[in-house]
């Protein structure tokens, strides 16, 4: 079994790994780095529970190999809170009851992070369109939309 050495900048910290090429990025984060905030909900690139940012773009980390992140930047839910202060997106999800079981939440928030970066004042349609790669089974999406609207009204850090 050939492995490769990789260095991935995760939430601002370089993290090294010795990985099989087939190791999925999501498993690198969850198992090798023990960062379990990023979740797995399907096998078919359908649910978005595993969403992280790769060089600032929201991607499904179950559909990328860890070796592909070598030398690049990954941001996960663990990177949202800065200096003990919740990000505006986390605050929005809390204030507007945008989460219930909390399983889709990290992926949903990471998608939101990229969405608001590209489109600081999204319409409801923009928001619904933007999160359409992330499934939520609990909220019926109404309060997620409100949470994102809440965040959009606050200045980004």
């Amino acid at each position: 079994m050939t492995t490769r050495k990789i260095t991935v900048n995760v939430n601002g910290t370089p993290r090294e790994g010795e990985v099989e090429p087939r190791l999925l990025l999501v498993h690198f984060l969850r198992e090798d780095l023990s960062m379990t905030g990023t979740h797995i909900g399907c096998d078919t690139t359908s649910c978005g529970a595993c969403t992280v940012l790769l060089d600032g773009k929201a991607i499904k980390s179950c559909t990328a190999f860890a070796v592909q992140a070598d030398g690049r930047e990954v941001m996960t839910v663990e990177g949202l809170e800065k200096d003990g202060k919740l990000d505006r997106i986390q605050e929005g999800f809390h204030q507007e009851h945008g989460l219930q079981c909390g399983f889709c939440t990290p992926g949903m928030m990471m998608t939101t992070y990229a969405l608001l970066k590209n489109n600081p004042s999204p319409s409801e349609h923009d928001i619904r369109w933007g999160i359409s790669g992330n499934l939520c089974r609990c909220t019926g999406y109404v309060n997620i939309v409100k949470a994102i609207q809440y965040a959009a009204q606050k200045p980004a850090e």
């Binding site: 198992e31 379990t36 809390h94």
Partner: peptide, 21 residues
């Protein structure tokens, strides 16, 4: 009132079964 359980879920610190190691 806002939910108490949010604090851990918002930070990716929920403890789901696959997080048990």
């Amino acid at each position: 009132i806002k939910r108490k359980e949010d604090a851990r879920f918002l930070r990716g610190q929920g403890k789901f079964v696959d997080d048990v190691k």
